[in-house]
Design a protein around this nucleic acid. Structure first.
Lengths: 352, 352
DNA sequence: CTGAAAGCGCTAACAC
DNA sequence: GTGTTAGCGCTTTCAG
């Protein structure tokens, strides 16, 4: 339609009566520019609605971006393996813009390990970092240092209210719990007992799991008898004992598990103890979870989409670093309901 | 790690003892090149594993891409308004690469209108077209012409097996019906009557709606008494009559509507006739559907995500045209289950 | 048939 | 402080 020929830096320069060098300086706030000249250029920039050509920009500047990823060891927990799997496609997308991604892993069960890895990240002098801040205090330390070094960072999976990241990427945990409640209440069985299992590795996470539980309770209301259990999955013998007892309560109709690993742990025990009549809702598309979903032991999974979370995190950070894009303070993912019948469509889809 | 300095055309030229112009010619098979020279250059290309720099490529060639979009009039049907809404974000993403999108609309109820619009598309000589081939025969005509003119095209929403598009973007309709059945069967009410409503505008679409029905039937099996109704929504008075009678059958426990508009039409009638106890599963996040989902008249919506479909279509076509990317023959979207509790997380999410 | 050279829009080094 | 200019890697004339 409108022969909206793209405005170039050169055009801006002419209109403002300066050189391209000066325009470049005010755009990037680098070097020195006389105050009145800057004003004039900024005006022209504004009024023309100038948009830089990213191709030319990237082509013209040869420096490579290095962004660090700090997550739990993928070998320890499949959830984090999924998260890590987002690195490859991101690299494919961004490597032609000269992006490098350095993954750093820490031990899910050791806060000291987080601190150590954080140090390594810092000393590698990255241009930006994307981190899953599993350990609260250690994370705050890291953020302080990143702030000091002016290194931008993006949080994902776990939010930390005290932090000031470029962006947080994750889900609304409270609403997630509500969805869980909704799914559990679908079959209006007479049995109104609901067991909530928090099976976690680090105590730091409890607060986030509790948010899910609150959502669940708020949705279900007083008509249900909800009991919650805080368990540590390290001691599996003991776990078996405890869970077995809970599952055999005569009025138990449903179970909600707040973690992805926990989901298949409970599913396994349910099957072992022949309690597959109890409705089960849990999290994420781990292989074991898919197995039990297929078998009907798990009724629904809520997908947190860790892979996509790292992709979006990397993409956001890169966009910020490369193209100075504004990022949303929060990027909340949809609460995807996964059932036996639609799970295939998720697994087969590449656009997801 | 490996200081894999990118190989440029210039390097290839030197290694083959020719000029960059010649290398460019063999890469793009344009112009004339002596057979032996071509061989030599191709060898070097192979052995070095040369990968062109897409940024430079696009920057260097100033021609603008024009892609045509051919869909039903957004004013006629909110579903298509959603589809059209994908144009804007796509343009924002790709306009800097010199992309132009020309939307062409046709009348959902008039196959001749499709033919007319198709002609217009053709005469605008686009570089590629993305089309919702609602009318079967007219679409085949269009494809024949596009094939002849060597204009690549992408199908979306509706697949046409006889066509050979670059890519089809949509959903697995049969599996979609299965998800519908799964959702309807969740509350195991005693009433086993299920009504399937196909409320469509063009008869061409029937075959696709039937695919959903087959999925539904295959999932529910013989335990349910399934009756299906083919209705045309043009005559709303008559529709009211018919549907009212169906809804008041004493054993009716659930209804499945195969179209997005149909979903809120049935919901409206259900509310009007006080039949909100009947479970209702339908399609898509139209405003009216959201309203009835919120009210509890609709139990679940399956999201076809028309907006994202056009975005992906445009993105695919552009990637093909600009960067010669290989496209997947089929891009099947996940079958998203939308409930009262997770709908907000979808509406609020930008990454979706 | 082939080579040389002028861009594409932006960055960054250098000169004044 | 500001202007000039040489690239970035590729495409596209234009000669010959």
């Amino acid at each position: 339609m409108s022969d909206n020929k793209n405005i170039r830096i050169k055009d801006i320069a002419e209109m403002a009566g300066v050189s391209v060098g000066t325009v470049d300086r005010v755009i990037h706030k680098r070097g020195k520019v006389a105050e009145e000249v800057r004003k004039k250029v900024e005006n022209v920039l504004q009024s023309t609605g100038y948009k830089p050509n990213l191709l030319a920009r990237t082509l013209g500047s040869k420096k490579a971006l290095k962004i660090a990823l700090l997550i739990p060891d993928p070998k320890q927990d499949e959830y984090w393996a999924l998260a890590e799997s987002g690195v490859k496609p991101s690299l494919e997308e961004w490597s032609q813009y000269g992006l490098e991604i350095a993954p750093n892993f820490f031990d899910l069960y050791e806060s000291t390990s987080f601190a150590t890895s954080a140090k390594e990240v810092l000393s590698s002098k990255p241009d930006g970092v994307i981190v899953a801040p599993i350990f609260h205090n250690e994370s705050l330390n890291l953020f302080a240092e990143l702030d000091r070094d002016q290194i931008p960072y993006v949080l994902f999976n776990t939010n930390i209210p005290e932090a000031q990241p470029l962006s947080f990427i994750g889900q609304d945990l409270y609403q997630s719990g509500k969805v869980g409640g909704e799914l559990l209440s679908l079959d209006n069985t007479e049995k109104k007992g609901v067991a909530v299992f928090h099976i976690h590795e680090s105590i730091d996470n409890s607060v986030h799991l509790k948010a899910k539980e609150t959502g669940l309770r708020d949705f279900l209301g007083t008509a249900y008898d909800i009991e919650s259990y805080d368990l540590n999955h390290v001691n599996s013998g003991e776990l078996n004992q405890i869970v077995s007892k809970i599952l055999h309560q005569s009025d138990l109709g449903a179970a909600f598990v707040s973690t992805s690993q926990g989901t298949n742990i409970i599913a396994t025990l349910m099957e072992k103890h022949n309690c597959t009549h109890i409705k089960l809702v849990g999290y994420d598309l781990l292989a074991a979870n898919l197995h039990y979903l297929e078998k009907g032991v798990i009724n629904f999974l809520i997908n947190q989409n860790p892979k996509r979370m790292t992709q979006v995190g990397i993409s956001h950070l890169t966009n910020h670093l490369l193209f100075h894009k504004e990022l949303p303070r929060e990027e909340l993912f949809p609460l995807e309901i996964i059932s036996k019948q639609n799970v295939g469509s998720y697994l087969n889809s590449r656009i997801h």
